[in-house]
Write a protein that binds this DNA or RNA. Structure first.
Lengths: 211, 211, 211, 211
DNA sequence: GATGAATGAGACTTCATTCAT
DNA sequence: GATGAATGAAGTCTCATTCAT
């Protein structure tokens, strides 16, 4: 970060109004506490206290705990979705490793994901949002794999549907580990992922550009 | 009530005391309601009502809601753990498919798994139990894979650690699908699992008994 | 109260279950506190405390404060309605005085009436109930007066509609005074009421049975 | 804004300072909202919003919600009080009708009256003010009626005290109807009032100036 | 043992009032 | 003066747990 003071020379900061700051603080506190203790175990009062504001202030910015949760989830919706599969020329394992690293780098540590299963049980609206997103991703996955299959790159005796959810599981768990702050070896993961997806011959062809 | 012991002599009624029956009913109700609505969303009163007993009766059999939950989890602890990896002679894909089917067949549908992440956040004791179990399983997995690796069956450039959690993810997700009542093609899954684990040459050797 | 022990010799009391007793206590406390401090100034906690039960108990019997209020009002709906006008033979002033005394005797002291105007502002359902009742009574009043008018008993130049609400006002205020515990001279009131209603000639005829 | 003082020279705009205007707006908003929804159901924020000022501004002009209410009541104290009884020569029914019309004409529609009973329950000071006023009025009424009684104008067998509250009830209800915006036939009302007050002979004498 | 009414701590939410800008 | 965000006390209501019958 060179010349950061250049930035500093602009009117202090983007002049985030107090308001904005408090809302941010509440969002951050919500994220932290929800992740740490779970949704039900976290009270609005606690979130407010953690954000150093009064209880009532919480309700200025969010109609209730659920709304705050929704904000958090919406913010993370993109990163919660696994990356898309694309295969440019080059070693697919390395390519994938690179893309994974970039994609998951931006996922800030948060166990918000952990809360999802229980949350989905009780919140139909949330469930719909999430399921829609997952569905779209799933369709995309299937479509991509179908293309690869037609080109004869995949294992010939494996069905797309099962393959899809297996790969999705791997990506989901990868993301989990990242968000938990656990170390992840993207190179290794990419290798495993590719070998699940492609038979050795395909990998070889792709590596040598004979796609 | 004359000759009630005559009834006891019938093999159909295994002399389950009233008590036992009530406890069972409470356990069943707890499982169903927790799975359906989540732990916090289910009240002791509801569980009792669902089990057709009075609220107070709940507390005769369980010291509190948590204890019922613990029972449920303990009951399912085995099935919640993924199966062990063993490789007898024969087509490994078929062998695995058969074993998976048997192993997961006994998992009754229940979303109890879904509750785990949130539950672990708040209940240190539960977390320890679960983590210990997972850990033991993980160690076993690693040990088994190490053996296979030493024998040279695995992909040579893949590390055991990453491979382990990838395979665990696959099994975990498989179990999830089964407990959600979704259809699962064990044959397909076994194929994918085996190819992730073994390179084609190993598979070929195993199939032909040249292990 | 002679021989009260005779009563006492019956199995204690009508064996009002605890439950019933608590509900009664809550109703009584609600009535007293609402009357004394107003609806909004009375909290559920206070009502419970006054009835010597825990706050939560209040909610076993009433879904909320409003429902308790509704019970109270329903209980009093009859007595809140003014008596009907009927004229048998005899001195109308005395007849009326007697009937008023009987009718208002059963009104237990309570300022619940006082709360009505404000309550009606905010509670559409309550407003409808009350207005329907008032309306029915009004129609009855109008009908009765119309009969009397046709018989030529009323002041000839006074319209029924205005007369009706004037008489209703008198009865309403009478009831107010009674429920406030103020002394009321029914004889005097009946005289005034009758003279507002009938010209002296009619009264004379009625007294002498020449109806 | 050139020549703004020209505007000031117009007689229409009495140079109401901004301040004054805001206070007026708050008073108007308070009156409307209190009347419409009741005192407790109206928040200071709402009143401010309705008056197009900030919440804080409310507290510049009134120490609290109650003070605004007090202003409103004080403003209306005169009109809330029933008119005085005076009998000049002429047809008393017509005279009264005329005076009623003038007196109640100035009562702007507002259900503030409706709030009084509940308000008096909780606000001792307000209760005292109101009761004093009512008392003064009552004394005046009694005094006036006593004079009429001594002159032999009233029904001879009716006591002043009861008669007084009956007439007050009629006037109170009349005022209620006016403030609710309901149509009122002053002529009819005056007839009823007079016949309640005076026997036909007195009325006849008064009409013919033989008072 | 069984029952279900009772308890009361504590979460949620509102709003009168204050205060920094 | 004006603004409206912030405060926090207080009311509403739920539910885990206890207890008298």
């Amino acid at each position: 970060m060179p010349h950061e003071d250049l930035v500093g020379s602009f009117p202090t900061s983007p002049k985030q109004s107090r308001s904005k700051q408090k809302k941010e603080a509440l969002i951050a506190s919500g994220k932290e506490l929800f992740s740490r203790k779970g949704f039900d175990q976290t009270t609005a009062k606690e979130i407010a206290a953690h954000a150093r504001v009064a209880t009532g202030t919480f309700y200025r910015y969010f109609s209730d705990k659920r709304q705050l949760l929704m904000s958090l989830i919406e913010n993370q919706l993109d990163s919660m979705m696994p990356l898309e599969l694309e295969w440019k020329s080059g070693d697919p394992e390395k390519l994938l490793a690179g893309r994974l690293e970039i994609h998951y780098h931006k996922i800030n540590e948060s166990n918000l994901q952990k809360l999802m299963p229980e949350l989905l049980l009780r919140d139909a609206e949330l469930a719909e949002i999430i399921n829609n997103a997952k569905d779209r991703m799933h369709q995309k996955f299937v479509k991509d794999l179908t293309v690869l299959q037609k080109k004869g790159y995949l294992w010939p005796d494996i069905e797309i549907e099962t393959l899809t959810w297996c790969l999705e599981s791997l990506l989901e768990k990868l993301q989990n580990r990242v968000s938990k702050g656990e170390d992840v070896d993207y190179q290794q993961f990419a290798k495993i992922f590719c070998r699940t997806l492609f038979p050795p011959e395909s990998l070889q062809k792709m590596r040598t550009g004979k796609i």
